[in-house]
């Protein structure tokens, strides 16, 4: 009897844990991009989309993520989270709405979109001279990359 209860509880716990969705880190060399199927190695440019149902899609480049979102053609509030790696600290996810983007030929992203995301202006300034580089927010990036 006891073992049955334990089994039932474990099922309940498992089902609950399935619906709870936390951003999942990208494992370089193991995960691959949903859109272009390439293996993800350089996590600095990676992105992740979490749907309201908790399904996680991983991308190697912001361009692939946008092409996926455009092909789905749904409003962004249909997704729980749309995330992009912080360029200087790739283990950290940023919400795309909060991120500051820079495009440059000096950085070389896997699909040649060459966008890097930063958390704030100070970290961006340590890396790029912003007088020369134009910064973009998420909606501007979406305007720039129309696939």
């Amino acid at each position: 009897m006891r073992s049955i209860i334990v089994a039932l509880w474990s099922i309940v716990v498992l089902t609950i844990s399935c619906t709870n969705s936390v951003p999942s880190p990208i494992i370089a060399g193991k995960d691959s991009c949903t859109e272009c199927k390439m293996g993800i190695i350089d996590t600095r440019y990676a992105g992740e989309v979490i749907t309201n149902k908790g399904k996680i899609y991983k991308f190697d480049d912001i361009g692939c993520m946008l092409s996926f979102l455009q092909s789905k053609n749904q409003p962004e509030n249909k997704y729980q989270k749309i995330l992009i790696s912080e360029y200087l600290n790739p283990k950290n996810w940023l919400e795309v709405k909060d991120a500051i983007f820079v495009q440059s030929n000096e950085i070389h992203s896997p699909m040649n979109f060459n966008f890097a995301a930063f958390a704030d202006m100070t970290s961006l300034n340590t890396f790029f001279d912003t007088k020369e580089k134009q910064t973009y927010n998420w909606s501007q990036v979406k305007e720039l990359i129309k696939l």
């Binding site: 370089a28 060399g29 390439m38 293996g39 190695i41 040649n112």
Partner: peptide
């Protein structure tokens, strides 16, 4: 090799 043996892009 970690990713591809050979990789062609464009």
């Amino acid at each position: 090799n970690i990713r591809y043996g050979l990789h062609f892009m464009f």
